[in-house]
Design a protein around this nucleic acid. Sequence first.
DNA 1: AATTTTTTTCAACCAAGTTGCAAAATATCA
DNA 2: TGATATTTTGCAACTTGGTTGAAAAAAATT
Lengths: 146, 146
Amino acid sequence: MSDACDFRGLLERHQVRVTPLRLAVLEALGSASRAFRVREILAHIRRRRRVHKVTVYRILEDFSQRGFVRKIPVEGKAARFELACEHHPPHPHFQCRACGEVECLEPVPLEQVWQELRGPLGHRADRLEIRVAGLCRRCRRARGEP
Amino acid sequence: MSDACDFRGLLERHQVRVTPLRLAVLEALGSASRAFRVREILAHIRRRRRVHKVTVYRILEDFSQRGFVRKIPVEGKAARFELACEHHPPHPHFQCRACGEVECLEPVPLEQVWQELRGPLGHRADRLEIRVAGLCRRCRRARGEP
DNA sequence: AATTTTTTTCAACCAAGTTGCAAAATATCA
DNA sequence: TGATATTTTGCAACTTGGTTGAAAAAAATT
Ligand SMILES: [Mn+2]
Ligand SMILES: [Mn+2]
Ligand SMILES: [Zn+2]
Ligand SMILES: [Zn+2]
């Protein structure tokens, strides 16, 4: 789980003032190698201190703008957030249709897809997201399927 | 766009009773080759008759379950819906970061990506979604960029 | 026609996310 | 140092998208 990341340094490098809350948000995101709901981040932080949800929303918004946090749209209403620093390059995600959980997958080479997509596009495209949907192992077993 | 689709037949083939509202939802979805917000579908239908939003939500939910409508998660809280009949095979989508608009892109071959993704996955994956993000032409021009 | 089943509506609710502004904390400068 | 400006956080109130349960309306079945 990315103990490798130096959060303090990350903030400084991006010219963002280091505050306890900003650090706490990064630590929450770094606490597991997956994408978190805001409410999970809040819960994580609140084990140690008090925060207001607005603050966390604003911090996450700011970090995504600056590009060192990724906001991942998924099925259902709560978006997910994950670290996007050097240690966490873009990668596809799997989402279970039944329980809604999101799992990070290994990066896949996308040059080919990019090529097909970028060419004919009149837009400036700068990000490619892949989402795989299906039934996760747990949910499949819970239904008695092999 | 897609006058080719026989909505009445589509419903019958899927053993869904044909009702004016269900037809109206399909017609709204078929009215342009793009993915719609629920509120857009509502507006479209309301030009001719009255509907309650709950009904449309339930119809869309039902249709997506049955697989002839696709629900597309995007950035922002309102999901998009589009036809998923024979005439509308799966394809990537482009979403503008500035205005939020979603545009359908031409299908791309994904065997390669599927292969990489399906193999190591302990899950039953049955759907692969691609979302390209960036700045659309209009928004780019509006900012004075070439 | 009477009964059952399906479809649509209504009212009330919930959760995620946003807004404007005040309070607190932190930085800057006299 | 203390006074002032700036940044960060918190609070309350709100908006938007979507959901729930049960009643009313419509349609199918007998
Ligand atoms: Mn991830
Ligand atoms: Mn589409
Ligand atoms: Zn699952
Ligand atoms: Zn745009």
